[in-house]
């Protein structure tokens, strides 16, 4: 009977870990009394934690009606060249290609011919860039359309930064050239490749 006593004590203690089941988790650290982006709010009347600008106001430094960088216009006229803040180089066009393929190609097509996957499905008609009207159009026009939209196209000014929009419109020029290049204006090595049909 001497060993039975520690056993009996053990039997009683063995239930103790089950008390862990009675513990609860705190979630006050997980859901803190603060807002992160896109969270709903029961404080503001419209239920949004992210606040829309007060009517008839703009964010500081976001309203630049005189800046060609932000509007594509200089003194009310569409600019025919990139604004001074944007440098035309291979990086700009490479970025323009990426942004164009992400935002524009669904409707306008990867080749800019208006044959995008979305345009192919619906009643949506996306114009081709490969027309004489658009080939001779000032570059500021493309920027203005990308920013504010035109006809049934919505503006992308809120979605794409101004720098990226300029990259896109520069890339549109590359698209236009790629599908409509005057052979006489091409360098000789390109002329040879055209003749070879490669």
């Amino acid at each position: 009977m001497a060993n039975a006593i520690p056993n009996r004590v053990l039997v009683r203690l063995v239930w103790l870990p089950l008390l862990l089941l009675l513990s609860a988790c705190h979630i006050d650290m997980y859901d803190q009394a603060k807002y992160k982006s896109n969270q709903p709010s029961d404080f503001f009347q419209d239920g949004r934690a992210m606040r829309a600008p007060v009517p008839n106001t703009v964010a500081m430094n976001s309203f630049k009606p005189d800046s060609p960088l932000a509007t594509g216009k200089l003194n009310g006229e569409l600019v025919t060249n990139l604004p001074p803040e944007i440098t035309l180089d291979a990086n700009l066009l490479a970025r323009g290609r990426v942004v164009f393929n992400a935002y524009c190609a669904p409707c306008h097509g990867l080749a800019g011919d208006g044959q995008g996957v979305i345009a192919n499905r619906g009643p949506l008609v996306a114009p081709s860039y490969h027309t004489d009207r658009l080939r001779t159009m000032a570059i500021g026009y493309f920027f203005d359309v990308a920013t504010n939209g035109v006809n049934r196209m919505y503006g992308y000014g809120a979605r794409i930064t101004a720098e990226d929009r300029w990259a896109v419109v520069a890339y549109i020029r590359a698209l236009q050239l790629s599908q409509n290049a005057d052979v006489k204006a091409l360098p000789p090595e390109d002329q040879a490749k055209v003749e070879a049909g490669k």
Partner: peptide
Amino acid sequence: HIPIERAM
């Protein structure tokens, strides 16, 4: 028409 890379 020319390749897009060359056009860029």
